[in-house]
């Protein structure tokens, strides 16, 4: 509330300034301030927005006659770059590829899911509809490659996002495209000639340690016992460090992330704009 107060006061002061001094003087300062804005909202701000969305969903679900518990968003316990190659030997010795970590995280049943399952079928249908809307109509996103994704523009999730972001179709379409970039980036890194060129050295290092794999992906395609997983991932990590494969995938991941952000600049800017405008609403909840 205090933050909104300060912002509000700032805006009013700026407006006053426009009235007194005139637009030509004030405007350049205003644009400069806008240009200095970071291209993304901060992690904290995203959390504020997600929490606000959860509060709105809770109110909406309760209005529909159900319970809804606000829970923190599920976070994958395995760092994203480890899906290319694990390059932290200590982590690998303890967690392998992270299979057990993921299983444990998945096993913690969301209290909302537990509540949902406790209901009789007709009530389950009513609750799922309350959250996700009826038919998947109203929101459409077309992803690069032509994939069409649809969702209902009704239901508590959509209503919460509409209340926060205003323009729900734009919010949905931009969010889906941006979420999809991660998978796209993954494919770009693996297809990069520098990655391909670095594989033989890694593979040779692995062979010296008793493993025959042409790539870290190939090493992951077997279902392993935990003991084998830890040993194998430990070797993978040590080879990723000694051959530089780990550093390379991190570099490529960062660079393709930047490239994709550049390519989708206007979409990202639109989304950031919606997020910024939603922040005061989120803080007022």
């Amino acid at each position: 509330m205090t933050r909104i107060g300060r912002r509000g006061a700032g805006l009013m002061a700026a407006a006053g300034l426009v009235a007194v001094v005139g637009v030509t003087v004030v405007r350049p300062q205003f644009s400069a301030a806008e240009a200095e804005r970071p291209a993304q909202v901060s992690v904290d701000e995203v959390e504020e927005l997600e929490r606000a969305e959860q509060i709105l969903i809770q109110r909406c679900i309760e209005r529909a006659g159900f319970q809804y518990m606000i829970v923190p968003r599920f976070v994958d316990p395995v760092p994203f770059t480890f899906s290319y190659v694990v390059d932290d030997a200590g982590w690998a010795d303890k967690h392998g590829y992270g299979a057990a970590l993921r299983r444990r995280a998945e096993a913690k049943v969301d209290p909302n899911e537990r509540y949902f399952r406790s209901l009789p079928p007709t009530r389950q249908e009513a609750l799922a509809t309350a959250l996700n809307g009826p038919e998947p109509v109203g929101l459409t996103a077309t992803l690069p490659g032509g994939q069409v994704v649809q969702h209902s523009d009704k239901g508590c999730q959509s209503e919460a996002q509409r209340e926060l972001y205003g323009d729900l179709p734009t919010w949905y379409a931009s969010t889906k495209v941006i979420q999809n970039l991660k998978g796209h980036r993954f494919g770009m890194v693996l297809g990069d000639p520098r990655y391909q060129a670095a594989l033989p050295a890694w593979s040779e290092c692995m062979r010296d340690r008793g493993y025959r794999f042409t790539s870290p992906d190939a090493a992951r395609s077997e279902k392993l016992t935990q003991v084998v997983e830890l040993r194998q991932a430990g070797a993978e990590a040590r080879c990723a460090i000694s051959t530089g494969l780990g550093a390379l995938v991190r570099e490529l991941d960062t660079s393709y992330d930047a490239q994709l952000r550049e390519e989708h600049q206007s979409l990202l800017a639109t989304r950031v704009d919606l997020q910024r405008r939603a922040l005061p609403k989120a803080r007022a909840l």
């Binding site: 799922a128 038919e135 109509v137 069409v148 649809q150």
Partner: peptide, 13 residues
């Protein structure tokens, strides 16, 4: 137009 044409039952888990 494709999305407008699609109808399906509501979410049921």
């Amino acid at each position: 137009s494709a999305s407008a044409a699609v109808t399906a039952p509501p979410p049921d888990g």
